[in-house]
Amino acid sequence: MAELHRGHLVFSCGASLYAVPAETAAEVVTLPLLTRVPGAPVHLVGVFAHRGEVLPVVDLARLAGKPLDEAFKRAVLVRGASGAVALTATRVLGVSQLEGKQDRLGDSGLSAHLRGPARGPAGEVAVIDPEGFFDFLARGGA
């Protein structure tokens, strides 16, 4: 797990602030029109082709059980060992150093793959653990 003092890309999804280590954040993109995938769970809102690769889009709000009405404009591409996923972002705040702890925020679900509580310039931030998060998604988000 990367150290907090190293740079993290901080973004919001709904009312929550999330962060990913800057080295795992491949790119910030403007989301194009998505292609829905048959039989996909609700947090996998679709896929889009980006630089010759099909990227799944994960809606963190839905995954956290707090779906939003608004359409997402931006997404943060996070790359792990098994590929990349696009995380929906309401607003991307930029790269910041964080302070605080790196403890697990929960035991099950999404929160089992979030670390904290950490603080950024914009407030309290949940830091996503990319590897565990990817495993979590590969298991069907359950």
């Binding site: 800057a22 930029g94 790269v95």
Partner: peptide
């Protein structure tokens, strides 16, 4: 903004 964001991200890397 997007370009600058990605540039900042790259610069940080």
């Amino acid at each position: 903004d997007l370009l600058a964001l990605n540039a900042e991200l790259e610069g940080n890397k």
